[in-house]
Design a protein around this nucleic acid. Structure first.
Lengths: 197, 197, 197, 197
DNA sequence: CTCTAACCGAGACGGTACGTCCTGTCTTCCA
DNA sequence: TGGAAGACAGGACGTACCGTCTCGGTTAGAG
């Protein structure tokens, strides 16, 4: 469903209309890319998507849920999950790719999600659940390093994953995603030395 | 100036009224403690402080600036700046104290500041300036370790400071400030090993 | 069909389901008695009657038609049509009984019908048709008085009927149905003197 | 302040802006004349008047109050208050003039007011107060007839005024304002005979 | 005895309007 | 001139209904 379509969609009956669902997500993404978080309102999304506000509220209980959906939709270009064979390569690759991944609109959406979570309790829960899932997944990178015998067995993979992503968060939240090759190197160096045998 | 005062303050003439300034900050802090970021609006602060909205806008160009003022005001209980004599002690102490420092309302204010910065460009600048200043200050902790010969000379103090505080930010932003002694230990361990000779 | 029934009614095939019809009218009446015109919506009636909205729209093209049905249903306790033998007795009896008849929920329904007719053209037609029929019927009261030789032959029965019921309408629409015995006497007196030989 | 002005009005400070007040009333009247009660929403008035909704709600607590203001504003062409020297002339003139007065948009506004009063309690109070005041004022017409010795002393002036205006209400509410000269004559005749000595 | 047409409940849909809250600007009046 | 006060245009919020539509299922009656 193109958002440039000026003909209103009709209901398809008592079942959820996938066209509406798609149009709303597309409109949300477009508005975000054009106007950022400041211009991102349910009202504006509804207008752009030619959808009724209640239709949005029916399926996304809060702005944060809609943002989260937009974010996961943007992840079609996959999240970094490197496996270079060395811990140092994995960490550097993870940070570099995540920074690149966030450098487009994706980062803005994620930032807004974090911001939204500070005001809205529901958003906080959704973000926390997502964040935990990601941290656990990324911990696999460190588990592989342990299996290779490269990483200390007594170093906590979850803590390492958490720490590494924390640094990415801070770069994102303080608008320092651009030109960070050198500082990523330095942080990678600290992390690697902190984790290897 | 008590906020329970029912007599309106009058202008004291062609000079800034320090009573108004204090009343506004006090009201802002109170509202934040009672209702959090969600209830924190210029309107509400003005109402509580018995001040006119233009008076607030005159002295604080944005909500973020007011938040920042509230935050620095809360820092009368000083920020952590440990000097235990060992790198491990310093790092553990820094994280522990920062977590404790943020556990009250202070953390909420700082979170909101970070959130606000994602939507408001002015807030972003203010936060970034503050954050850089803090990171540089905390880097001194690592410089002392280098001076003691405990830390590698080729490890970047700013990067270390940035990484450490990034972890604290993430704990704050994902509501995990409570009961983090064990995970702080694990992260401290990684950092220390990553930095020592 | 009780509205407390928790089992949904199914279609009975290619014919109108009288159970649904009855349930909708019952629900409409209940809602009106409980919440008045303000709470009276097609949505609410459908919910209460466990009916689909299209079922209601199929049989009652507008809210006014439903209201009119509810009203005529409430008229099982018959409308006043006195025949006391004297014009004065008839008029006083008509007004008194109509006021009493309207004093329950019936009056509220009729008021709402009049109100609805001001916004909705279809409602206006339905009300006008009903009103004309009633006025003509009541005119019979005056025709009987003429036949008795009590009323002037040149006084218009329809006009008299219209004027008398107009007064009842105004009492209804200005919430003055209660305790109107004295003012009804005064009006009756004017009307009688205006009509007798 | 012309409503065709496309430049937004600015606030004139801490005092009520008479331009806004006038623009809102003008817009309300225009919308009513164009679209009738059905299209008359606070939203539409605000849009047309280039006013914020809160500005309207600040000064008119309900739609009915706004309607009442529009109505009284339309009364610049004065309400009928005949003094022809005879009771019959006064009554006929009152009804005829009121019907003519209501034949434009004014009648529509008053109808809507009556309708609104059936749903909204506040509207009901406002209408009742207005209606009582009008009835009392019109009763003066009958008092003059009594003073002339034309009308029975024991006929109640208020009841007469109430009855007469009730008939006008019914004509209004049943859309029978046009071409009512003959029926007005008949009703006038009944009323006159009912009131004279 | 099958097929079809109309009915039923349910509920999603695009919309409109509601009444409230807040934003940032502006003006008036007081000290 | 600074400050309290508060009106202003504007816009987003989340909710309630509107009237329309489709769905899946049911049954009566037409062929």
């Amino acid at each position: 469903m193109s958002t440039t379509d000026t003909q209103p969609r009709r209901s398809i009956g008592a079942a959820r209309n996938p066209d509406s669902h798609a149009a709303i997500l597309a409109a949300a993404e477009e508005i975000f890319c054009e106007s950022g978080y400041a211009g991102f309102s349910i009202e504006a999304v509804a207008r752009r998507a030619r959808a009724g506000k209640p239709t949005i509220y029916r399926w996304w209980p809060s702005k944060a849920h809609l943002l989260l959906d937009v974010y996961t939709r943007l992840k079609s270009s996959r999240m970094p999950d490197p496996d270079t064979g060395t811990l140092e390569g994995d960490i550097r690759s993870f940070l570099t790719e995540l920074v690149r991944f966030w450098s487009g609109n994706t980062g803005g959406v994620y930032k807004s999600l974090i911001a939204e979570a500070q005001a809205d309790h529901k958003a906080a829960e959704a973000l926390q659940a997502y964040s935990i899932e990601r941290t656990q997944h990324t911990a696999g990178m460190f588990e592989r390093a342990k299996a290779r015998g490269e990483m200390r067995a007594d170093a906590d993979s979850l803590a390492a994953s958490d720490l590494m992503s924390a640094y990415a968060w801070k770069l994102l939240l303080t608008d320092r995603l651009a030109d960070q090759a050198d500082i990523i190197d330095k942080v990678t160096s600290i992390l690697v030395r902190g984790l290897v045998k």
